[in-house]
């Protein structure tokens, strides 16, 4: 069946690099699954969870923003603004970050000059991290508010 050489890079570091069997990626056009021998493709990512199947089993990776490229020769590259493996997500920190962003949003509504779209993206991103971390730890999903 063959494998894909898969790499996730963020501006801060290379998060994951391995040979894998398949990967499901959330894009703006909906979720797509890449299998070996996929044709070359470039697509834009959405905040969400990416599922990777490698020799060890399935991994969940929280990603936010960026783009992906399937190259020839079974190479897949994901360039995300943020990416985190399920095992690396710090629940408390994610919750705090989300709360901080929500607070800021409340202030933005009160008329302060803050970049609203950016804040919404932060809230979504942290929510996504929470969801994935809780899924991994077999906890009930976080409450929306």
């Amino acid at each position: 069946m063959g494998t894909l050489h898969f790499k996730i890079a963020t501006p801060e570091k290379v998060v994951y690099e391995k040979d894998i069997f398949q990967v499901s990626i959330p894009t703006t056009m909906g979720e797509i699954t890449i299998l070996p021998h996929h044709i070359p493709l470039v697509s834009v990512l959405q905040t969400g969870e990416m599922r990777v199947k490698d020799a060890e089993g399935e991994h969940l990776i929280a990603i936010a923003g960026g783009f992906m490229e399937v190259r020839g020769k079974n190479e897949v590259v994901v360039l995300a603004s943020n990416a985190e493996l399920e095992t690396e997500i710090d629940l408390d920190r994610a919750e705090k970050a989300r709360q901080a962003a929500i607070d800021q949003m409340a202030r933005a509504k009160a008329g302060e000059d803050i970049d609203f779209a950016r804040l919404q993206a932060t809230v979504d991103r942290e929510m996504n991290r929470l969801k994935i971390a809780r899924k991994y730890r077999k906890l009930p999903p976080p409450k929306e508010n």
Partner: peptide, 30 residues
């Protein structure tokens, strides 16, 4: 390594570029 015509763009090349370019500038400054 491949002819660029073989690439598939989702949704389209224009959108992809308009996302990549600011990122590239950001990365450069970073």
């Amino acid at each position: 390594k491949l002819e660029i015509d073989e690439y598939l763009f989702e949704p389209n090349a224009q959108t992809v570029l308009s996302i990549i370019l600011p990122k590239l500038v950001e990365t450069q400054i970073y």
